[in-house]
Simulated assay, not measured.
Amino acid sequence: MPKNVQKLKLSDPLFDKLKSFDGRLYSYVVAHDIGFAPNPYFGFCTLACCKPTIRKHAREGDWIVGLTSRENGTNRIVYFMRVDERLESFESYWKDPRFESKKRSTASDEAQLGDNIYKVDKRGNYTQVESKHSDGPRENTENKERDLKGKAILVGTTFTYFGENAVELPPELQPLVIGRGHRSHFDEEVRSDFVKFVCRIGIRGKCGNPAKYRVQLLTSTCTEKVAQRQLERKGCGGC
């Protein structure tokens, strides 16, 4: 269990959000947990790139669960987040001062993983800035098309991101397991079990680094630089 566990109290507003949960629950596999999609930094968990279908259809009040692929016969939970806010365009994401820190820069390790990567010109055309979805300084048209297809950016302030500390998916939540794509149709029992799970875990925020964090950082070692360049050419691989 991650350190700094924050137990929920009956007075916690999260309980009200969970009790009134009448939205949709989404589950999918985070194929490559590198800290880009989702991006759990600077107080917000954002899903701005990859998973265009989820981003297109998810609404405020919905919950999203990201799983690991099946490893050693076990699926684990990388993160879960409540969609507390839905931004309807990349233009609004780019211009919102709250998400300035989400723009990719070399200011910090976390900033290098920024997912606020599409700026709009006066004619309404988007430019993809250098990021995990570009080919170095050049745009990656395939990733760009897929990202823009999703249209919306999902923002969560109510989230738990385990990353490398991913926790085992409990038996009652096995219906969340998915291969490719996503699932979003669950019966009331599964939804109720999910609510109980969130209350039982009782933690929020970023509780660990991405599972593939180190290889994403620009370092002085030749091996990791090569791995970094390979990942940049392929994109984040989590779509």
Rank of each mutant, 00 (worst) to 15 (best):
K225R: 14
T74A: 07
G23D: 00
F194Y: 06
C199F: 01
K144A: 15
G179Q: 13
N143W: 11
L231P: 07
K144Q: 14
K19H: 04
C236M: 03
G73V: 09
Y79L: 07
E60Q: 11
R233Y: 12
Y126M: 06
Q216S: 15
D33K: 00
P52R: 04
F42M: 02
H32F: 13
V198M: 05
K196V: 01
D121E: 11
D115Q: 09
A152T: 08
V195L: 13
P171T: 09
K95C: 06
R76M: 00
V30K: 00
R183I: 06
F99N: 07
I54R: 03
T74V: 15
Y93C: 02
G150Q: 04
E232A: 13
V167F: 12
N4T: 12
L10N: 14
K95V: 03
L231E: 12
F90H: 14
D135M: 12
P2V: 01
G238T: 15
C45E: 02
K102H: 13
F194W: 09
N116V: 03
R180A: 14
V5Y: 02
N165L: 09
H182W: 13
V78Y: 09
K7N: 13
C45M: 04
G235E: 05
E164I: 14
L148F: 07
G35M: 05
S101P: 03
C45I: 02
P13L: 00
V226F: 15
D33L: 00
G163P: 07
R82H: 06
D96R: 11
K119Q: 13
Q112M: 13
G238P: 00
S134K: 08
D115N: 15
D33P: 01
K3H: 12
R214M: 06
C236L: 05
L148N: 09
Q6P: 02
D22S: 09
H32T: 07
V198R: 02
C236A: 05
A31S: 05
G23P: 02
I201K: 09
L218H: 10
R233W: 10
E85S: 08
N140E: 05
P171K: 11
K151N: 03
S89I: 01
L154P: 02
K196D: 09
G237A: 09
T106S: 10
Q128C: 14
P171N: 11
F44K: 08
C207Q: 15
D62I: 05
P210Q: 04
E145A: 14
D147K: 10
S20K: 09
F99P: 04
K151M: 03
Y126E: 10
N4R: 11
T74R: 09
M81W: 01
T158N: 14
M81G: 12
Q174C: 04
C239Q: 09
A31G: 02
V198H: 02
E130I: 11
E139T: 15
A227D: 07
L173R: 10
L154K: 03
Y28P: 05
R200W: 11
D187P: 01
S184N: 14
R123L: 15
C50Q: 00
C207F: 06
R70I: 14
Y26Q: 01
F162T: 04
